[in-house]
Design a binder for these strands. Structure first.
Lengths: 162, 162
DNA sequence: GCGTTGAGTGTTATGATATTACATATGGAG
DNA sequence: CTCCATATGTAATATCATAACACTCAACGC
């Protein structure tokens, strides 16, 4: 299982690996991995949680890397369209991808208590959704799958008997 | 298949049926189906498409049923929390449920060209998402499933050879 | 070299979506 | 009738996102 988000893990390692993967991908595809874009990705990787665009912007501003919303949104657009970062529609927030460079359809488990987000894989063309699409002649290009609920930690604290 | 949205259908009939079902549900559960709430649902049913809150509010205002955002948002909150209307996160918009009263997890097929939306069923606890949740101890309470793509009509117009 | 071009960035302003807070009304329970 | 819960009216504001335009700079053709 490659779900990441609710367990402890080698954080520095996963950050370094993700940055390296993104760098390689950009070099290979002749994409400009500029300082602002890199910094936004670093912020998201190091926080390892879903962050709003303005929250990211605050950090950029503190570092003198741009102070207006378009700076953050442009960097996020780049990162999202290349699959390095995902947008969580439900939270209007962004989170670094846990396996950048690979082509995939992310699915998210979002804790309503602590806002922790875990990334899993979805297979939208399979299952009932794919069948419904096929039946009606709809062509799926991209899918958003977000489950709200309680993460293991928060479930414990709600049922303290455990 | 109970997907609705890309085919012609008895529009007046589906509107009457939905209103009746909602009325029955409200009576049974002692919920207040007030004029504003009813009108918002009627607007969504009659347009039969995803609408923004402010777009709905414009109509309410024209009819003297309230002019400030909270009026629309409160009615929408009521309708959404009782499953009569769904929110399309991807569009920040709302759409009337095609089978109100029944307990269900909706999934949507959204055309990126014409913004038509079809509602299907999802089964979030099954498939990879359910497995990922079970593996990590996450409890799914509610899920958002939204597929973007091209509806049959728009696919035709993109490939005019058909 | 030098102009042209295109991508990225800086900045201002504004648009679009959503909520807080508080005042007012209304209808049923005791 | 009074109290209370629920719903509504309204003003103000918070939050999220984009349009439009000026500027920089590196790559390229000539």
């Amino acid at each position: 299982m490659d779900t990441i988000g609710f367990e402890a893990h080698d954080h520095k390692g996963c950050m370094r690996a993700a940055l390296a993967a993104v760098e390689a991908h950009c070099t290979r595809h002749k994409l400009q991995f500029t300082p602002v874009r890199r910094r936004v990705l670093e912020i998201l990787l190091s926080e390892h949680r879903a962050m709003g665009a303005y929250e990211i912007l605050d950090t950029l501003r503190d570092e003198g890397l741009g102070s207006q919303p378009p700076v953050a949104y442009r960097a996020l657009d780049f990162l999202v369209s290349n699959g390095f970062v995902h947008k969580i529609e439900r939270l209007n927030a962004f989170i670094a991808c846990t396996h950048p460079g690979q082509d995939h359809t992310p699915a998210f488990l979002i804790c309503r208590q602590c806002d922790a987000v875990a990334e899993a894989h979805a297979e939208p063309s399979k299952g009932m959704l794919g069948r419904a699409a096929a039946d009606t002649g709809f062509t799926i290009e991209q899918a958003v799958v977000e489950a709200m609920g309680l993460c293991p930690q928060c479930r414990e604290s709600v049922h303290p008997c455990a």
